[in-house]
Design a protein around this nucleic acid. Structure first.
Length: 565
RNA sequence: UGGGGCGUCGUCAAGCGGUAAGACACAGGAUUUUGAUUCCUGCAUUCGGAGGUUCGAAUCCUCCCGCCCCAGCCA
């Protein structure tokens, strides 16, 4: 009796456990509110997907829970609407919906300013006029305490006046900053009077030139969370040291609500890099063709490559949440993809490296149609008709002149089944006199074997894919391999660009595919039987000039066996 | 050498004092008109190390070792 597997039990990671515990004691009046707070300074990547799946996932799993989408747009010089648009698109594509309107930290600028004024009035913040270099010197080091700024004890009135003039644009960038007055001797450097406002006479993508001072992350984030009534503020490990500051701001300001910050480890994937800065560099230096290059670990790159939201969400569930530094093998992501695509992708035949085969005893000029299942395990997905004729193409790697014992495919005198068509036996190998290269194969077919079986019931071990030479469409196929040669391109502070894989993209220009593919919609993923999954290139493919991206290969036991020798 | 974290199978990851889930990978085998899928089977006497507490420890205590993060007017 087969077990009806319930949906995978939702995460029992430490964060969800904390939420359950909080719910059990009616903390936050039983509310659960999370948020996904990207800075619009780059495209989202698979690491963000982990955070998205966590935050939005929680809002879907807990009764009445919500998740806000908030842009942390406090640094106008690095941010851009292009990024906002892409982030909205990516979150939507992953299948999540946010609570209410999209939020922007910049919507809170006025409130944030008022809170800062309050801090000054309470003697908890001051305007510091040290230069950036001086501030660094005063900060001390990891092992030595810092020194108080000479401006630390300015009067409330002077601070208020200066801060107001900072806002009015009376000073140039860097002339003054507003600092929280905490403890220059704190062993936690984040508490050594951190900057909370800096002067930046920059055009903001939303507020335009309304401001010339902008609040810092540590100050903005916690207040934004509190203003939105967030209960659990989830972020990555590097912010753990910032939590005391997060709490200091909210405690000092006596905000009515004090969200709990919880940190988890960020995602690392083998053979790629995951920082926005490095991804930007790959784009700007032309190592890839844009943020959505199918080799990029960006959501847009994965989407263009043929990945599905389901695969990515399953992946995020599969890898779990913890506080341990880890690096997930790319194979796990690929396996999640195959899981989904195996279920949903229609099957089709495509020959990547065509080898011409002439069927000697097949009538000249005859064409017939064979009916093939679109998905052998799902009859409900229907069938399609594929033309067959005297001259076909098969995969070059499906023929070996001197095959080893376990090679189930074609060789001189060997018989194989052409998927859904006939058994053929190779009788001659035609070579280029000069180079020795195999130009074509001459085979005979067994007319009795139409459809793939014979009256005598003889077995053929191998089944290979094919395409009718006269009918097939020519196509360009882009084969992608890992972007980096090193499992961890950033290891030991190395220049990650040095381990870029020069063969991460291989373009095949004269592949041949079933004629029906000429009408396939851009973005659709098919399984090219025995090869892998391929998607119609969303941007570059045309009916008269087909382009496919190889999304992921099929598992290949034979390749493994033959490599081992 | 200051502070904050983390160490459970090759890789992730449950476990929260009662005698090591699961996933991926890997190795066998079955079925197969995709060497795919599916299906069985195997895979940590042991939880970074050493002590201690306890009838009993991955779980509690002590010490040690290793790894990660922090000195942006970035987030």
């Amino acid at each position: 009796m087969k077990q009806t597997d319930a949906e995978p039990v939702q995460g029992s990671d430490f964060i969800r456990n904390t939420i359950k515990d909080d719910l059990a004691v009616n903390k936050n009046q039983g509310r659960v509110a999370t948020r996904f707070p990207p800075e619009p300074n780059g495209y989202l990547h698979i690491g963000h997907a982990k955070s998205i799946c966590l935050n939005f996932g929680i809002s879907e799993e807990f009764e009445g829970a919500t998740c806000n989408l908030r842009f942390d747009d406090t640094n106008p010089v690095k941010e851009d609407v292009e990024y906002i648009d892409s982030i909205v698109e990516d979150v939507t594509w992953l299948g999540f919906s946010w609570n209410g309107e999209i939020r922007y930290a910049s919507d809170y600028f006025e409130t944030l300013y008022d809170f800062a004024v309050q801090l000054i009035k309470d003697g908890k913040a001051y305007v510091c006029s040290l230069s950036a270099d001086e501030i660094r010197e005063y900060r001390g080091t990891l092992t030595e305490p810092g020194k108080d700024s000479p401006y630390r004890n300015r009067s409330v009135e002077e601070n208020l006046d200066l801060f107001k003039r900072m806002r009015n644009g009376d000073f140039s960038d860097g002339a003054h900053i507003l600092r929280a007055k905490i403890d220059m001797a704190s062993p936690n450097i984040n508490l050594r009077d951190p900057a909370i406002y800096r002067i930046k006479k920059a055009e903001h993508h939303r507020t335009g030139d309304a401001w010339c001072i902008y609040p810092m992350y540590d100050y903005t984030h916690c207040i934004s969370d509190a203003l939105e009534g967030i209960t659990h503020s989830l972020c990555t490990l590097e912010f753990e040291d910032h939590r005391p500051l997060y709490d200091w701001v909210l405690d000092t300001l006596k905000t009515p609500c004090h969200p709990q910050q919880i940190e988890f480890s960020r995602l690392n994937l083998s053979y790629t890099v995951m920082s926005k800065r490095k991804l930007l560099q790959l784009v700007e230096e032309g190592h890839v063709n844009g943020w959505d290059d199918p080799r990029m670990p960006t959501i847009s790159g994965l989407r263009r490559r043929g990945y599905t939201p389901t695969a990515i969400r399953n992946f995020c569930r599969r890898i779990g949440i913890s506080k341990k530094d880890s690096r997930i093998d790319m194979g796990v992501l690929e396996e999640c993809l195959r899981d989904d695509l195996n279920d949903t992708a229609l099957r089709v035949m495509g020959v990547l490296e065509p080898l011409k085969v002439v069927i000697r005893n097949y009538p000249e000029g005859q064409t017939e149609t064979v009916e093939l299942m679109n998905h052998p395990l799902k009859p409900e997905l229907g069938t399609r008709n594929v033309p067959f004729s005297k001259v076909i193409y098969i995969e070059r790697s499906d023929f070996m002149e001197d095959p080893p014992k376990k090679f189930f495919r074609l060789g001189p005198g060997k018989e194989v089944r052409l998927r859904g068509a006939y058994y053929i036996t190779c009788t001659d190998v035609v070579k280029d006199e000069a180079t020795g290269e195999i130009k074509e194969l001459v085979c005979t077919h067994d007319p009795e074997s139409r459809g793939g079986g014979t009256p005598d019931g003889r077995k053929v071990k191998g089944t290979i894919h094919w395409v009718s030479a006269e009918h097939a469409c020519s196509a360009e196929i882009r084969l992608y391999d890992r972007l980096f040669l090193s499992e961890n391109p950033e290891k030991g502070g190395a220049d990650f660009r040095e381990s870029l894989n020069p063969d991460s993209l291989t373009i095949i220009r004269d592949a041949r595919v079933e004629p029906a593919l000429a009408n396939a919609k851009p973005g659709t993923v098919f399984q090219f039987e025995r090869q892998g999954y391929f998607c119609v290139e969303p941007r570059d493919s045309r009916a008269e000039a087909l382009v496919f991206n190889r999304t992921v290969t099929l598992k290949d036991t034979w390749a493994k066996l033959s490599q081992e020798g």
